[in-house]
Design a protein around this nucleic acid. Sequence first.
DNA 1: GCCCGCTGTTTATCGCGTAAACAGCCGGGC
DNA 2: GCCCGGCTGTTTACGCGATAAACAGCGGGC
Lengths: 249, 249
Amino acid sequence: MTEPEPSAAVPFTGGSSGSGRSALDQRRIIDAAVRFIDEHGLRMLTMQRLGAYLGVEGMALYRHVPGREALLDGVVESVVDELFGDPDVHLEAHAGWVDYLQRLAHGLRRIALAHPEVFPLVATRPPAAPWVRPPLRSLRWIESLLEVMTEAGFSDENAAAVYRAFSSFLLGYLLLEVSGRGVETGPVEEPDVMPMEDLAGYPILQRLEPHLSVDAAAQDFEEALEALLDRVALLLPRRRRPPRLTEGK
Amino acid sequence: MTEPEPSAAVPFTGGSSGSGRSALDQRRIIDAAVRFIDEHGLRMLTMQRLGAYLGVEGMALYRHVPGREALLDGVVESVVDELFGDPDVHLEAHAGWVDYLQRLAHGLRRIALAHPEVFPLVATRPPAAPWVRPPLRSLRWIESLLEVMTEAGFSDENAAAVYRAFSSFLLGYLLLEVSGRGVETGPVEEPDVMPMEDLAGYPILQRLEPHLSVDAAAQDFEEALEALLDRVALLLPRRRRPPRLTEGK
DNA sequence: GCCCGCTGTTTATCGCGTAAACAGCCGGGC
DNA sequence: GCCCGGCTGTTTACGCGATAAACAGCGGGC
């Protein structure tokens, strides 16, 4: 994505207005891919099927997208970028860093829940740079986070530590929540979920499960995770230990 | 895996000893798959290639494994089960719950680092049940964890909360560390990593940079884990919401 | 010694990603 | 008004991967 435009100075080839017949363009393809994955699951996404979904032969997509991998990159980028449009996250309108992190976390959670089938992709696609990582995946947000933290009085080092702890926890949290969701509503995959009866030998687990149904278990888990998310800010490190300097490792 | 054995009472078809010519069996195939993925990356794993790796035609694998998906499930299970053989985790020899969780976390981290190409699979494969989740993925460990926590005086509810917080954090952390590793040493994929020069416009990010080395990562992990465990108490649920009794769902 | 079942091999099919040749359409220059 | 180059979608073609099905050697129980 963000292609270098091989034949550069093309003024728009037909214009966005006018005939309006040009069914395809990169944006439309990526959006369709996101919708397709939401509806049918990632493993169903195929160039031909996505083409059909857009009323076109599969090969047509290659006029606008370099290939499948690039398309998936575009999907990830597109989904993560939704955060910028989220009115509840409003970068500037935050009241303190805890509030800021909570808004950010909840914004990402909304995205993950809106696209549960896409999120594993967000989580596992190789990052663009070593510290531009899931689930933020965007220089803009990382910069913003570090800025807020340092403005709140954190040292540079601690701000970075907060970034790492926050994104680690958030990534794990969202991945767990979303994959749990997949178990319940998986439209295509529907893996074998262990039936409750097999719990017989594991009495301790019953405590996780005062309720009987899988739905209830999932619901519980979700509620607990949600409560956890509100408290994520509390995880952040305080510097206690003087950096152990020359101890033989 | 743990197959129901269609033709049950087979005493071992050739015996494990004796001729020793039977090159293939499920264990050997899964082990080879793990090694193959470690060496060449997940995307290189193909039934034919794995066959060749074992000195056999690809189709031969289907005599012992139901198919590719099942094979991957087996790979995940096999890798996670390494934890049971880790002498440093020794289930019983722990001194307090913090020590226990740290040993567990470090054991899993060792596994993740030993099989960085496998770990994303561990993280994203659909879980067997809603609360049997990555990265533990095993009833045995979940049971063990809950037991330790309750024996340490945590209520059932709080033990479950610790389980959720701990596994979320651990999953996210390890996934990030392992994928970061892929960026540096990726044997096959080598995605386009943004070169350092492109940082020019983002001075704030320079702060994150000192943490590229493995040693630094390990240090980070320990500190983050300690911070998490220190503050687990803060993550535990308070009942805020009265349990909704008869609300129409 | 013969036959069966097990294990690995060969052959075949289908779907996928993608390259390459092909074809309709449209707007600009004459 | 007409022609042409380029852009967009289509068709054709290839190689590969997963997997079913037919096939073949081999070794042990009768």
